Simulated scan of single mutants.
Amino acid sequence: MTGIDLVNGVVGAVFGMVFAVLFQQPLQNAWFRIRRRSATAVRSVTYRDDGVPHSMWSTFSIGPLHTSALVVEGDGEQAIAPESVRVHVLDGEVALPEEMAPWRAEIAAEQEQAEATGTRVRVWNGPRYAVEGLEISRTALEEHPDVRLRLRPTDYFTFLAAQQLDRRLPDGSTPRGRYLDPDRPLDAPAFLQCSFGVNVAVVTADHLLVVSRRSDQVRSGPGLWGSSVNEGLSRHIDSAGRHAPDLHDVARRGMREELSVQPHEYSLTLLAFALDVERRQWSAHFTAHLSGLTGDGLRSRISHGVADRWEHQSIDHVPFRPADVVGYLLRPDRVRRWAPLTPALFHLALVHTHGRGAVERAEAQVVRRLR
């Protein structure tokens, strides 16, 4: 290299540094502004305002999986303390409107006929609760949820009659059209909300999520894949007419009856309250982490006998990691076979363990791979 080449190199380097200092950042800023304006222009061309305000009450979905589950309270990250939930049982049983009362009579007659002929097992008209209202507020200082659940007595035949939301009434209307407003999903008469239950997402000691498939013999959601444990409130069992039911105790009963697991073998956390707006069925969403039982241990325990074996026809175990659970939810043979409240339950259980950011990133990645 000659002296001239060395001088030229030094001068070029100096000019390069000066150019970078003076012009690089302004050029980057200009390029960023051009990109941002282009993106805005594209969005303004493709976006169409339908002129209709969009409701804050959107039901739960992940990519192609759309459910009728509305998460009313709870985000998965903050647990709802047992003392934050107050349950009140009001006097006076729920009564169906005059035009729907014959539907209940039909169900009672059908069940009597089934028992007399032996064509199928008769459904027991068990005492249940209907939801009069669910009010949620916040504590003054910590802003923790404060939940007040108001219930009324009802029975299973009334529930079955009220599930016929799209059956025609004498005037041609339906219970759904006459009594429900889609823009006010929390407002409904108690006779259309004769179901409140608990759903539990159970995670084994070796970090496997327990998924149950409902029996083909049950009246509600036969053959659908659902939560690890599902248990409805019973006036006969959960309160015996003497006190209001405790939701944590109902969840513990479900764990015992469906999985044969005792309270000292797991930790139980209330995550949310959810509503199936299509069927008007309420749920308290829990997660339970087993302290000692692995997936194989739980299978062995179930094989020794459980009280409510008939309610489920099979169980599956899924690694309790966001990508694995979301991929399982969106499997082609599962995506349209879920009980409506289950996907939101599993999402909230994942958030409680892994954090919202990790779960939402996994959901986005899985959905992208499906496209």
Rank of each mutant, 00 (worst) to 15 (best):
R280K: 10
Q365A: 04
R361H: 09
Y129D: 02
T294P: 01
T40V: 06
R33D: 02
G295H: 08
L151K: 10
A81E: 15
N29R: 03
E265F: 09
E135Q: 14
R33M: 01
R334H: 09
P102R: 03
G357M: 10
V85S: 11
G232D: 01
E231V: 13
A69W: 02
E73A: 12
Y47H: 11
R184G: 00
T119S: 15
G12A: 15
R35W: 02
L345T: 06
G76L: 01
D308Y: 14
H289N: 13
P189L: 02
E363C: 06
R178D: 00
H144P: 00
H304T: 14
H285E: 01
D316T: 13
L149I: 15
H144L: 15
A288T: 00
G197N: 01
I4S: 13
M17N: 08
F159E: 14
Y266S: 00
D324H: 07
V85F: 08
W338P: 04
L224G: 10
R219I: 14
F196W: 07
F346N: 12
G172Q: 11
V326I: 15
R48L: 13
A201F: 10
Q163S: 15
D296P: 04
H317T: 13
A116T: 09
A201Y: 12
A30W: 07
R242I: 10
R356N: 06
L160G: 05
H243W: 07
P185D: 05
V42D: 07
A81L: 15
Q281N: 15
A13V: 14
H243M: 05
P340F: 00
L224V: 11
A362W: 03
L329K: 11
D206I: 13
L290D: 01
E98C: 05
S44N: 02
R242W: 08
T287E: 02
A109D: 14
T67G: 12
E135R: 15
L151G: 06
S55L: 00
S314H: 03
G133H: 12
L268C: 09
P340L: 03
G232K: 09
M100F: 00
L141T: 10
R336S: 14
T154D: 06
L186D: 05
G292R: 09
E132W: 05
F19A: 04
A162R: 07
E132A: 04
L270S: 06
Q78M: 03
S58Q: 10
A364N: 06
G305C: 08
L27Q: 13
G92K: 12
G226C: 12
P319N: 08
L224F: 13
V229I: 10
P322M: 02
D316P: 05
E73T: 13
L275V: 07
R253A: 06
V94P: 07
R176L: 10
W282P: 05
R279P: 02
Q365E: 00
H264F: 11
G177I: 10
G223H: 09
R213F: 02
L345S: 05
E106Q: 01
R331F: 01
V85H: 11
D308R: 14
L208G: 01
H304R: 15
H354R: 14
E106C: 01
V14N: 08
L186S: 05
E106M: 02
L165Y: 10
P245K: 00
D296I: 11
T46E: 08
N125K: 10
A272N: 03
D316H: 15
A108Y: 09
S84F: 02
R184F: 01
G297F: 08
V85L: 15
